[in-house]
Write a protein that binds this DNA or RNA. Structure first.
Lengths: 245, 245
DNA sequence: CTCAGTACACTGGTCAGACCAGTAACCCTG
DNA sequence: CAGGGTTACTGGTCTGACCAGTGTACTGAG
């Protein structure tokens, strides 16, 4: 006979559960309003501080937002990757996830989105990608170039038609940039760097235009390795090379 | 000239920032204790409810844990993927992420972890995989078989040595199962199903033993497609086929 | 009748003080 | 020295209060 360990269930936790259930199940849609705190405390039969702690937790999870003075009450928000971004970012900074693992993950995600994008791209997608690449070519300064690069990858992810790929890619790209952007922006040969990036992107775009997903994925992974591997400790680069087939 | 939108900064948010900064920067290590709430309210110069709301947020992020009665105060926790797990789960369930997108994402993740596992596996990893497979073969009933299957995939992810792959895979597998487990458990030919799964896993394990990452990844993706594609609407299956190279 | 301006009711943010159940360290006893 | 009871303190919750700020309904001028 086995027993489960028990933990006391706080009142505010049960409130969180109920409201969260209503949100994820769709009974509460984005834009809907929750009753005010004073109304909620009578509905749940608890004090206002308990209600407020529950709302704080939900707000930290970006499920709701409350503003003082709004008589319509707290607003139910649309699902957004903000909370995912924060928790992944925290986890990444907590040393269990180093740059090597992040890059590895990014090679997986970017490679797959490139492959899918090449197979699924429409004519409109191609013009969007063209203009994104144009934005990189005409960028003035490194900061703008970096923004245009992120935008290009976002378009690729969008074209892959998978929201999970979009969100995860976005998050991982952000965290990688945060970890090494100071090193990148202080590199003494940023001009060479930018030209190299641009050439890589052109090759990738050609493969996508040719609907050659295999090549697009390989090129994307290779580009990541070529440009970032130098910031990965030498003994961890073997984690990356298996992805360069 | 461009201006940034401003949002009023709440007192509890400033407290969260300070404590979170201390945790991620390492000034507070796991196992350390925060002062009690009454002490914190004098240090920050705010009321106890404000302190408590800040602690609630930090607790929801799994950065700290507080237990009533403990005179040593709230405990700083080690980084864990729990918060990431929850936010990804919410995002997957909330926004219209259908079975097709989830399966697509899972094929990407599982394929990559199989590839990496085949390249990085040690002798101990192989024995662990053997016993996981043994657990599936000797499983009694569908529920136990399903648990053993999940455990097998978890071992694979662990062997790939990437915590992001582990946690993302875990989450996506969980969500996929939630969406179709009732259909699976009511299938009339569960015996055939389980035998088919088992054969697939044996093939995959052989490829991993042979350090043939390419094959392991292909087999894993094919197995997912073969066993789950029937639950995907026919017109969405084209999203999956590009991954079956 | 339209519309700008104002008054008001009510919101969430914060504080103060209180009570309770439960914990852990301490002390006292055997 | 071991063990059990005492006690000071913890976090969880409630009540009641005040404030700055918001949306709305009303009012008055055009």
């Amino acid at each position: 006979m086995k027993f489960e360990p028990v933990a006391p269930v706080r009142a505010y936790e049960r409130i969180v559960e109920q409201i969260e259930e209503a949100v994820v199940s769709g009974r509460l849609k984005p834009g809907d309003r929750l009753p005010g705190e004073r109304e909620l405390m009578t509905q749940f039969g608890v004090g206002r501080s308990t209600v407020r702690e529950a709302l704080r937790v939900l707000q930290a999870a970006e499920l709701i937002r409350s503003r003082p003075g709004d008589p319509r009450g707290p607003e139910v928000l649309a699902a957004s990757p903000g909370a995912l971004h924060r928790s992944m970012h925290r986890l990444a900074r907590a040393e269990h996830v180093g740059l090597a693992e992040l890059l590895q993950f990014r090679m997986v995600l970017d490679g797959s989105s490139h492959l899918l994008a090449a197979e699924l791209r429409t004519a409109e997608d191609l013009t969007a990608l063209d203009s994104a690449l144009e934005g990189m070519a005409t960028a003035d300064g490194y900061a703008e170039f970096s923004r245009a690069d992120v935008a290009f990858h976002d378009v690729i992810a969008q074209v892959s038609r998978n929201p999970l790929l979009v969100v995860s890619g976005e998050v991982v790209r952000g965290v990688v940039l945060e970890l090494i952007e100071d090193k990148l922006s202080h590199a003494n040969d940023r001009g060479t760097l930018m030209r190299s990036w641009l050439r890589h992107h052109e090759e990738v775009l050609n493969a996508i235009r040719a609907a050659d997903g295999e090549s697009a994925a390989r090129l994307a992974r290779q580009a990541l390795y070529d440009n970032y591997a130098e910031y990965v400790p030498k003994d961890q680069r073997t984690l990356l090379t298996p992805l360069l087939t």
